[in-house]
């Protein structure tokens, strides 16, 4: 069982959260010319790192906020959590 520290609610069990994928992927700027390659990278291509991985989770059965979580994909250890609008440092 993962235990995720929601920045709004505190430490909660994995059952309350749903997963949202790689948090470092940025949507291409609206209104700017986007190449097919950039769009492809945004929609489909992922690094899927082994080790420390920043990812999005939603506290679905809690405050319903999206949060950022830094987790090790090999050991499942969780290092840091951030609010959605906080930049990954």
């Amino acid at each position: 069982m993962l235990h995720i520290k929601c920045p709004h609610c505190g430490l909660r069990s994995q059952n309350e959260f749903s997963y949202g994928g790689d948090a470092t992927v940025k949507r291409p700027e609206l209104g700017k010319e986007i190449s097919d390659k950039d769009w492809d990278n945004f929609v489909y291509n992922r690094k899927s790192l082994r080790g420390k991985h920043w990812e999005l989770w939603q506290h679905l059965s809690g405050c319903r906020q999206w949060i950022k979580v830094q987790r090790d994909t090999a050991t499942h250890e969780i290092f840091k959590t951030l609010k959605a609008n906080e930049e990954i440092s």
């Binding site: 790689d22 790192l49 499942h76």
Partner: peptide
């Protein structure tokens, strides 16, 4: 399990 993982072992939920 629903999240990226290389752990080769799962969680109970």
């Amino acid at each position: 399990d629903g999240y990226n993982s290389y752990a080769q072992r799962g969680n109970l939920p």
